[in-house]
Simulated scan of single mutants.
Amino acid sequence: MRRLIVSTFASLDGVIQAPGGPEEDPAGGFTLGGWMFNYCGEGMDFSASGFDGKDREVVLGRRTYEIFEAYWPYQPVDDPTARTLNAAKKYVASRTLTTLHWNNSTLLHGDVASAIIALKAQPGPDLQIIGSGNLIQTLQAASLIDEYNVWTFPLVLGRGKRLFGETAKPSALRLVRSQVSATGVVMSTYVTDGDIRPGSFVTAEPSEKELARRKKLANDRK
């Protein structure tokens, strides 16, 4: 069974919209595109975290595909990321696109979760999602993502598309790797770790004051 791996950039408050430039995704009036630029530097291994899709097959949402299709085929042939992404086999989830012009790109038809389940069952390298926030949310809710590479940048954007929303499925993750760049970017890798296992720090019998507080909360929810 192939793994499905996510790699994405995020602000401290979880925004993933338009990290690469002002024109990347201005949807919703977002004006802070390009927020990751000034934090990139030595010691940040994009390939090791899957951002170039090296040795993997790439899965993209429609918006990210259109951004990549308009950029990577036009970069110098000696650019290692361009060379890797242009050569990689790519699967694109879209309800509106009918034709793909980027080399080695294939449309996923029908229900995207079912399509990914079928891909994971096929022999081959692991599957790599880059960006593609809406697709990540859909596949996370379907419990299909096995690993997350999340680079958290030290800034708060306040608005924009977020990595996870209210539709996210509650699930536990386990940190397997973490490194901090010289510019303060926390580069972390998580794997799925089953269901959330709640607990409580309260070990003694609750006080009358605590019981009254709980009763008030219950009444407020009615």
Rank of each mutant, 00 (worst) to 15 (best):
S132V: 03
S132L: 04
G133M: 05
N134K: 09
I136F: 09
I136V: 15
Q137K: 15
Q137A: 09
T138P: 00
T138C: 00
L139P: 07
L139D: 07
L139S: 06
L139E: 06
Q140W: 14
A141D: 01
A142Q: 08
A142C: 05
A142S: 10
I145W: 08
I145S: 11
I145F: 12
E147H: 02
N149R: 11
V150A: 00
V150D: 02
V150P: 04
W151C: 01
W151I: 03
W151H: 11
T152E: 03
F153D: 00
P154F: 07
L155C: 13
L155Y: 05
V156W: 04
V156L: 15
L157K: 04
G158Y: 05
G160E: 06
K161R: 14
K161W: 06
R162H: 08
L163D: 05
L163F: 15
F164M: 12
F164H: 09
E166G: 07
T167C: 00
K169I: 02
P170C: 08
P170R: 09
S171A: 15
S171P: 00
A172G: 11
A172M: 12
A172E: 11
A172S: 15
L173E: 06
L173W: 14
R174E: 13
L175H: 07
L175K: 10
L175S: 07
L175Q: 05
R177G: 03
R177F: 10
S178F: 02
Q179G: 01
V180I: 14
V180W: 02
V180Q: 10
S181H: 13
S181W: 13
T183H: 15
G184P: 08
G184M: 06
V185F: 10
V186K: 07
M187E: 04
S188G: 05
S188C: 12
T189I: 02
Y190W: 14
V191E: 09
V191P: 01
D193V: 00
G194V: 08
G194A: 09
D195M: 04
I196W: 07
P198W: 08
G199S: 14
S200H: 10
V202F: 10
V202K: 13
P206Y: 11
S207H: 07
E208L: 13
E208M: 08
K209F: 06
E210M: 13
L211R: 15
A212I: 13
R213T: 10
R213D: 14
R214P: 00
R214F: 12
K216L: 15
A218S: 05
A218C: 00
D220W: 11
D220M: 14
R221A: 15
